[in-house]
Simulated scan of single mutants.
Amino acid sequence: MALSGDHKSRGELRIYDSEDEVKTVLAEYVAEISDAAVQEHGVFALAISGGSLIDLMGKLLQPPYNKTVDWTKWYILWADENVVSKNHEDSSFKHAKDVFLSKVPIVPSHAVSINDSVSAEEAAEDYEFVIRQLVRTRVVNASEISDCPKFDLILLELGTDGHVASLFPNHAALNERKEWVTFITDSPTPPPERITFTLPVINSASNVAMVATGESKADAVLLAVDEIGPDRPSIPARMVQPPNGKLVWFLDKLAASKLEDSDLNN
């Protein structure tokens, strides 16, 4: 590991030499939170964004995690998902099933996919209903400071434009405060239709992990965690600030390359 430290209100920064090292330590981090959650309240409620984050779960298939993690206690949901068929190549559920879910003894019903036979708006409504049921039955904790669910961990990847989940810069979905899950039909990157957790849900989590690797993420990392000036735009990732939870950034050196050494040591 190259550097670690707190960056004021922007969370804890953990910076590693390579993307592969990030994946290794992130798997360890997920396993530790899983163990703690299971010991504390009997289950581990995880929400994960799509894309390359799912590939890191493959590290959990390796020793020691394949033997030590209590997979039967996991509930895995999507912080965002493309509104496509579960068999479509753009489905995060399919990606996770191929890479990870089919190789560990997670209870099939505990991997909660979206309804892929309805519109994006209906899919968001259905997914929120499922989460409300999980809160009602205490599978997912309720936040002490809002009416939102309190996931044990929400795992997000930083986009090059600063988006997280499917909350994109200057999009109306960023302003949603009432719903837990909302939908978009105009994603700037394909596919256009998606469901996504809203900011209040993300910020109600016990733990939020933000992952960014590669030089293409360096500008977004700077905007997300550096002191912001009047000439710098505010990006969605900067709005992730759980008031009653812990935010940890997992970065490689390339993604952190535009941060000043003085910033990293704050």
Rank of each mutant, 00 (worst) to 15 (best):
L56Q: 04
I33C: 11
D35F: 00
R177F: 11
A237N: 01
D6E: 10
S49G: 15
V240D: 02
T189C: 03
I131T: 05
S34I: 00
L156A: 06
S52R: 09
V43H: 07
V181I: 13
R194L: 00
A27R: 02
D263M: 13
H95R: 11
A237D: 01
L222A: 12
F44H: 07
V181C: 12
L155S: 11
G229S: 14
D70V: 01
K8R: 09
G162C: 00
D70T: 00
F151G: 09
D252G: 07
A31Y: 03
M239F: 05
D55G: 08
D6L: 11
G214N: 06
V30G: 00
L60R: 01
D161W: 02
A224I: 11
V130Y: 11
E19V: 04
D152M: 03
P64L: 14
V104C: 06
L251C: 04
P105Y: 02
L174G: 02
L259T: 01
V118I: 15
L167S: 00
W74F: 02
T196A: 04
M57F: 06
D252C: 08
K97L: 05
M1K: 03
V130S: 10
F93S: 09
Y16K: 07
T72M: 03
A36R: 15
V211Y: 11
I131Q: 03
P200K: 04
I54K: 00
K178Q: 14
E128Q: 15
P192E: 14
V22F: 12
H110M: 05
D219G: 14
W180I: 08
H7C: 05
L101W: 08
L3E: 03
T160D: 03
P64I: 13
N207W: 05
S117R: 13
L53G: 04
S102R: 15
S92E: 04
T198R: 13
A31G: 11
Q133V: 08
P192W: 01
S85E: 08
G159H: 03
S18D: 05
G51M: 04
V221H: 01
